[in-house]
């Protein structure tokens, strides 16, 4: 113990300087060359910042495509999931309530057409995406609310489908913020 305590303290101080200081500095400096300079990339519409490209946000208006439910109400300073277990009766009731709400807002849609991602909360509470089916199933509602032909909206959604990585790995998905920004730009 005695012959170890001094090297232990000295070495810890060196590690503090190097890893908390040096390593952090290296990463910070290179971040200055990255898009957004390590401060995060924002999205712009209507001549103002309307969000962060990577972060999902809440859309409750029928005129917009909705994001997934969020356990933290899309607060980007306190992320989190619901942590509800798969068989929890209270949780299953919540899901059924969300389905009922969805059906009220989307007349003409049948229950079995609703994909589960639209009625389950994401892990972060900030999921920026919905599934492809989740976007198409909302087209009818948005078309009525905006008085735009359904066909035009379907084409817009199709244009916003993000392919799997290199077309090979992962999921197909739709970024809700991007879709809604371009939706606002559409002419009637």
């Amino acid at each position: 113990m005695k012959q170890n305590i001094l090297p232990a303290i000295r070495l810890t101080i060196v590690c503090m300087v190097f890893f908390m200081g040096g390593y952090t500095l290296i990463v910070w400096l290179t971040a200055q060359a990255a898009p957004g300079k390590g401060k995060g990339e924002t999205a712009t519409a209507h001549n103002r910042t309307v969000g962060w490209k990577l972060l999902g946000q809440k859309f409750t208006d029928d005129k917009y495509f909705s994001s997934r439910p969020s356990a933290v109400d899309y607060h980007a300073d306190g992320s989190g999931g619901s942590n509800k277990g798969p068989t929890n009766p209270g949780y299953l009731k919540t899901v059924e309530d969300r389905i009922d709400t969805f059906l009220v807002h989307n007349p003409g849609i049948q229950k079995k057409e609703i994909p589960s991602d639209l009625v389950t909360a994401s892990g972060s509470g900030l999921d920026p995406h919905i599934s492809v089916q989740g976007a198409y199933v909302q087209v009818k509602r948005v078309a009525v609310a905006r008085n735009i032909p359904e066909q035009n909206l379907k084409e817009l959604v199709t244009k916003h489908i993000d392919d799997p990585l290199f077309g090979l790995f992962g999921t197909e998905r739709v970024n809700v913020l991007k879709l809604n920004i371009n939706l606002d730009k559409m002419k009637k």
């Binding site: 059924e96 229950k111 994909p115 589960s116 994401s122 999921d127 919905i130 999921t171």
Partner: peptide, 17 residues
């Protein structure tokens, strides 16, 4: 409950993964 699960179990998961 009667909805579809095209991706699988999605509670607590992110669509991009």
């Amino acid at each position: 409950i009667g909805i579809s699960q095209p991706l699988g179990s999605m509670e607590g998961k992110e669509v991009r993964f």
